[in-house]
């Protein structure tokens, strides 16, 4: 036990040297280029919530409870060259998406899909790595089970990832975000500004995701992106006054 602790310490020391990187870093670096991999990468803080550590191509994922989580899932893949489209969410905060790490130059928004939800989504799945269906879309369009299955099959066939900001029947993986407390506001009121929020991401699903997982992260973190949670003891003392 202590041996392994020491060795990770040694690795940390080594990898802090300039020019030295760990094998997993190297693997990540050579794995660049999302066109080749079977997994679309996500931010390392979120990979623990996903059974494979990334978004499996061809899968359908339901993401509920937080748009920030949705954007954070798109972040890594878009910065590595994947294209993403968001259908039926005309009111997204694109600035927040950019702050969470999404390369918005590779993000398209279909604000009003009219009656063409199925054909639009199918066309996007043909050409893009990531397609997001906005919340409430399934209900508003009264999609039948057969129609949702068609979309799932399309995603699987085109090796794209279909993300639904909704409960999605037949989703391989379900991510649910339960919000926690916000940091940055002064208790007495009026001072500071929203800086970061602790959330818990629950992952559950079928197959490889059968075992439920729970991951705590800061979403958004101090600089707007995803961050590792504060270690428990320093939680409150970290709140800094600003403004």
């Amino acid at each position: 036990m202590s041996g392994s602790v020491r060795s990770t310490g040694a690795v940390a020391r080594l990898s802090s040297l300039p020019g030295v990187s760990t094998a997993s870093d190297m693997a990540a670096a050579t794995g660049r280029g999302p066109a080749t991999g079977r997994l679309l990468p996500v931010r390392p803080e979120l990979s623990a919530a996903l059974p494979l550590g990334g978004l499996r191509r061809g899968s359908t994922v339901s993401v509920r409870g937080s748009r920030a989580l949705l954007f954070a899932l798109l972040a890594e893949a878009t910065t590595r060259g994947s294209w993403a489209a968001i259908v039926g969410m005309p009111d997204i905060g694109a600035v927040a998406a950019a702050e969470l790490g999404v390369d918005v130059r590779r993000l398209a928004v279909v604000p009003a899909q009219g009656t063409e939800l199925l054909s639009v989504t199918a066309a996007l799945l043909d050409g893009l790595d990531l397609v997001v269906l906005g919340d409430g879309l399934l209900a508003r369009h009264a999609l039948s089970r057969q129609q949702t299955e068609k979309l799932t099959a399309r995603a699987r066939h085109r090796e794209a990832v279909l993300l639904a900001a909704d409960a999605f029947p037949g989703a391989e993986l379900e991510l649910r975000c339960t919000p926690g407390r916000w940091y940055g506001l002064d208790e007495s009121g009026g001072y500071g500004y929203l800086r970061e929020r602790a959330v818990t991401v629950h992952g559950s699903g079928r197959g490889a995701a059968a075992k439920p997982v729970r991951v705590s992260v800061l979403l958004p973190g101090p600089s707007g992106g995803v961050a590792a949670p504060h270690s428990s003891g320093t939680e409150t003392s970290r709140v800094r006054e600003a403004g």
């Binding site: 130059r105 993000l107 279909v110 604000p111 009003a112 899909q113 639009v120």
Partner: peptide, 11 residues
């Protein structure tokens, strides 16, 4: 399907 405004990119 939707017309030129059907797909937008944020700038």
């Amino acid at each position: 399907l939707l017309g030129p405004e059907g797909v937008c990119t944020p700038v």
